[in-house]
C-alpha cells in the first residue's frame, strides 16, 4: 500500500505552534537578546558581547547561590525519594483505605505554592507558630528568621512536606502495576522481603522513579515562591537560592544584561544535570 502523507496535520498543530512561540520561544529569544546587550534605559541598547556571561560565571555571589541551590536540591532528593518509596511500600494495595491514603497524600499537592510558604512561615514563627512555639517550649532555641540552621531546617521540612507526596504517588503507581504472581513466585522461591524489594519492586519501579527524580530535580532547582514567602532569602543571604537571586538582580537592581545571562546559564545547568540524571538511571535499560 502506498503511504499517504496527510498535510492536513500541520493545520491541526498550528495553534499549538503559535501558542508555544508566544509563550516560550519569543520570551526566550528576548532573554538571549538582553544577555548580549547593555542598556541605560530609554530603550537604548548597545552590543556587549559575552561580558555578562563572563561576569556572572566569575561572580562569587553566583557561586554562593549555586552552591546553596545544589545543597538544597540534593538534600531534598536524598530525603524525598527514599521517604516516598518507603511510604508507598507501606500503603495498602486494596481495600477501603486505599482511597483514604491517596486523598491524604494528594492534599499537600493541591495547595497553592505561595499559601504553602505563608502557612509554614506562620507555623514556624517562634512566638505564635505551632511548631516554632512548641520547639521553644520544649527547650530548643528555634528562630528561623535569625538562625541559619533553623531557616534551612524549616525550608527543607516545608519542601519535604509539600512534595514527598508526588514521589509517593508515582512510586505507588509503579508498585500496584506489579502482578500478584511476582510476589507469589518470590514467596515460593523463599525470597526475603528485602530480596523482593531489591529484585522485583525496585526494578519494576525504576521507570517511575526516574521520572520522580527528574521532576523533583527540575522543580526544586527552579523553586522560588515557597522560600521567597517563607524566608525571603534570609537571614542574610543564607537561603537565597538561584531563582531568588536572579529575581533580585533582574527586578531589584534592574541589571537586565547580567540577569539574562544568568537565566541562560541557569537553564543550561538544569538541562545538563537532567541529562546526567536520565543517562545514569537509564544506563542499564538496554
Amino acid at each position: 500500500m502506498r503511504k499517504t502523507v496527510n498535510q492536513k496535520a500541520w493545520f491541526f498543530i498550528l495553534p499549538v505552534l503559535v501558542l508555544v512561540a508566544f509563550n516560550a520561544i519569543l520570551p526566550l529569544m528576548t532573554v538571549v537578546n538582553y544577555s548580549v546587550q547593555e542598556t541605560f534605559g530609554n530603550n537604548e541598547f548597545f552590543w556587549a558581547g559575552l561580558i555578562w556571561f563572563e561576569q556572572v560565571i566569575s561572580s562569587p555571589r553566583f557561586h554562593d547561590s549555586l552552591i546553596r541551590q545544589l545543597i538544597f536540591t540534593f538534600s531534598i532528593l536524598a530525603i524525598e525519594i527514599p521517604l516516598g518509596v518507603i511510604i508507598a511500600l507501606a500503603m495498602p494495595r486494596k481495600g477501603m483505605w486505599v482511597s483514604v491514603c491517596l486523598v491524604l497524600m494528594a492534599l499537600p499537592l493541591l495547595i497553592p505554592w505561595n499559601v504553602v510558604g505563608a502557612m509554614w512561615n506562620i507555623f514556624a514563627l517562634p512566638d505564635i507558630g505551632l511548631m516554632g512555639y512548641t520547639l521553644n517550649a520544649i527547650g530548643f532555641d528555634f528562630n528561623f528568621t535569625r538562625q541559619i540552621e533553623d531557616a534551612w531546617f524549616t525550608l527543607l521540612l516545608m519542601d519535604v512536606w509539600h512534595w514527598t507526596s508526588l514521589v509517593v504517588l508515582l512510586a505507588y503507581a509503579g508498585l500496584v502495576s506489579i502482578p500478584d504472581a511476582y510476589y507469589q513466585a518470590a514467596r515460593i522461591d523463599g525470597a526475603s522481603s528485602w530480596a523482593i524489594f531489591r529484585y522485583i519492586q525496585l526494578p519494576k519501579m525504576k521507570r517511575v522513579l526516574t521520572i520522580a527524580v527528574l521532576l523533583r530535580f527540575m522543580d526544586s532547582f527552579n523553586i522560588y515562591t515557597e522560600p521567597f514567602v517563607l524566608t525571603g532569602g534570609g537571614p542574610g543571604n543564607s537561603t537565597t537560592l538561584l531563582s531568588i537571586d536572579l529575581v533580585k538582580i533582574a527586578l531589584g537592581q534592574f541589571d537586565l544584561g547580567p540577569a539574562a545571562a544568568m537565566s541562560l546559564i541557569y537553564f543550561l545547568i538544569i538541562l545538563l544535570l537532567s541529562w546526567v540524571f536520565y543517562t545514569l538511571m537509564m544506563r542499564n535499560e538496554e
Binding site: P179, A181, A185, I188, D189, A191, I200, P203, K204, N284
Partner: peptide
C-alpha cells in the same frame, strides 16, 4: 515451585541468575 500464565522472572537478573536464584536462596 510454580509456573504462571504470565512469564514471571526477575526483570533485572540475567537468565543464568534467574535460574540460579532458588538454589542461591
Amino acid at each position: 515451585s510454580m509456573v504462571y500464565q504470565q512469564f514471571i522472572n526477575y526483570p533485572n537478573l540475567s537468565v543464568y541468575a534467574n535460574i540460579a536464584s532458588p538454589l542461591k536462596l
